[in-house]
Design a protein around this nucleic acid. Sequence first.
DNA 1: GAGTTTGAAACT
DNA 2: CAGTTTCAAACTC
Length: 897
Amino acid sequence: MDSPEIPKIKANTSPSSDSPPVQESPVFSYISNLSPIQPVKASHAVQGFPGLSSPPLVFTSPRINTLRETSFLKRPQYPQLSSVGKTKAHDEAKTFVDVPVDSKKHITQLQMGLITDTQDCETNSSSEGVDEYLADPMEMDCTNSCQSVNPCLKESINASESEAPPEKAKEDLDGKQFDPKPVKNKVHSDGELPSSECPKVGSGLSIDNAFNGEHHLGFHNQGIGGRQQDDCDHNPPSPPGRLQIGQVYEDCTEKVGGTSKGMIGNMILHAPNKAKNDQGGMHRRCLQFEEAPPCATGKGDSSSVEKVNNSEPPASTAELEIVQVPNAATSKRQMGASLPPRYGGTSPLTVPKPSGIGLHLNSIVNAAPVVRGATTIKLADHYIGVQVMKSSSVVNHHLPENVRDETENSIAASSSITQSPDTVEFERHGSPPEKSKVDSQNVDSYMELNQSSSQKKRKKTPSSKDSDGCKRCNCKKSKCLKLYCDCFAAGVYCAETCACQGCFNIPDYEDTVLETRQQIEARNPLAFAPKIVQLEEEIQFTPASARHKRGCNCKKSMCLKKYCECYQANVGCSSGCRCDGCKNVYGRKGDFVPIEHGVIKDTISDKAGKETFDEKLEMVATKKDILSTDLYDSHNHTPLTPSFHCSDHANNIPKSPCLPTSYLRSPESDLTIISSYEKSTRSPLRNSKTGGILLETSKELSNMGYYHWREDYDNIGVADTFSTRYDAAPTTCHITPLSDLYSKASASSTSSRSDWKNASQAQLCPGSQGLSSSSSLHWCSSPVTPMARLGGTKSSQGLDFDNGLYDFLQEETPEILKDSSNPIRSVKVSSPNKKRVSPPHNHNHELGASSSGSLRSGRKFILKAVPSFPPLTPCSNSEGSNIIQNTSNLHNKGRKK
DNA sequence: GAGTTTGAAACT
DNA sequence: CAGTTTCAAACTC
């Protein structure tokens, strides 16, 4: 608030107010010479600079300066000249180009009488003063110029002037790539000049820099920071603020015309700026920029938010969105009702599903093993439940988890429930996009702020499970961005039911989540792969077909408590386990001897010790797949067990609706499944970021025979195609917005065929309409695969077994395991049993290429196996990556065609 | 509900 | 790769 800069600024401003003498000064003359337009102003600016310059020197970016200048100009205009302001501002902007930025600022202040305003702002560096500025200017601008962007800029500028540029704000700007583009954009916006003027401004800025050197820059930076701070203040929740800030910044910089976004961005920026204001240091702002946002959020949470709201009114719908987003972020999932504007027409319903869909393969896998013997699939169910819980429809999903028998019924009910558009998660999806830019660091700070703010008060009971059976985490330090978090590990966003603190595993922070996931995957491609692999009947030795992929390392629990992951998953310990004194009731370590059937994988063990085990699992899986494929035909309607849906929810569910038919037909389901798996795990993220992946995936899918599936799907009504169990799948899709997204995404990504999407969406996901574009892209990869897997595996066994879901899961798991266990393997594996190996690879490559570099190819498979993120991706996709997704979708479509 | 135990995950 | 630390769930009181 009371940053040292402020006093400086005031001093500067006051002198500037004394423009007459300034003009006389040699500097003024010089400036006047430079720019014929604004001799007087220039002189003022020059004088004022000395004082201003000293602090601002830190920042060198001319653009920033321009922005401030523009902002200064605008400010005066607003208060004094509502109508005239624009013309003057333009002139001033031009002069700025010629004249150093500082001079411009002073001039503007002097002329406009902004100085007084700025002083007020400075005094009020806190939220109110700035808010008023912003709000008023905004309104004025809107009325006058009608350019939404300008108002935002103006406001931000005003705030910056008054408050001085908070260091954090600068940092934010810098950190977010502000320096180059953002500044330009701001300049444009400030100048209120569409495009033509902006260039001038930019040039002017650069010139200014040359003249004034760092001083101007620093000052400008301060101004920017001030703006940002103001914006930040306006922004309700700090965490969102950061994210938004980054996004907004980009928007402003990129698009002058994007008034709404720009406004929002300004708002966001302001919030971080508040924190920066406190710091006051100009130089560090840039560095701190990233950090600043969090601080800002934390410091000026309430004030900033309120202010933001005030300023927002003038802003377009975009602003509203922004506001909502922050709220969503703060509340995590509370905002569920509000849908991101991006989705537009799409009903919130779609969003909720995604969350539910978010169920990771891991969860599924886990569920699968559990399924047979034990009725409960804890992991999968929990995860699913969590996301679902967020949405209204959660309950239904959960039910399936707990009881297979219930699953069908629950599914039917859930379908109706899920359809409810009220699902909370939807909001998440919408908001995240803006936040996507937030850095991990920002996230941390943001987290802190959030925690402090109150987002996580919801901390419910520590119990990991919800009443529905859904899991919820209670993370306190991991921010739900590490595998410690069950939700994150399952690839599901944390739900409202979660008691986590500083949670970043929410759609709002989709980008952060994705980044974190990628990082974790980079370290361990199988990190998100299902931990439990089912070994079907083929492995007769083991009491339970399923085994923990990595094995446990129990030393004291003797694998008789839930400390043991194997026990927790209701699976026996295997040779891969390093447990001591294993007494696992589901199967002791020594008892398990997986039999290698015909299928032999080249097995490039993911990891040294466990390769053998994994390979064995894979072998089993491959065999299963074969069997399942045979069954597919017969079980076209593969009844997706509720549990399965739940588990797969995030990833698979969406797919299920679309895929069922295809699965039925295509024996290649395994391959498809794998690909889907990969997609689900990574693709969502990757897809969101890179459209190329999607295209690839789509191609692959087409190769896989997804088209056929689509046709089948289309032909067969969802209800018709799906048996009672199958119905559950569609219902799930409807229920969870994620599912819709997935389905859409899958449809788009896989085939990019509108038909398939339309049919699937329309039938399966009524609310998905709007979402299809953004969400679908991301989802496409992931959702499709799950479906295929589910459909294929499930179809084979689904109806036959009461535990059909489990069976399906189990079947899937093997495939997953194959993929997950040995991403590379998957490719290799394809050889004996099934062709699928190759297809998955393709998918993987595609996905991998997009997300990660060379490693992905090998890892991709693994990622495919990793189901966890798909659910997230949908959310994330919808939000942060929407644009990317859209683009990718477009690309995919074009390519597909 | 608080504290302890446990083992996975993360880090070095 | 092994050892240590961190973390959150599971468990106990």
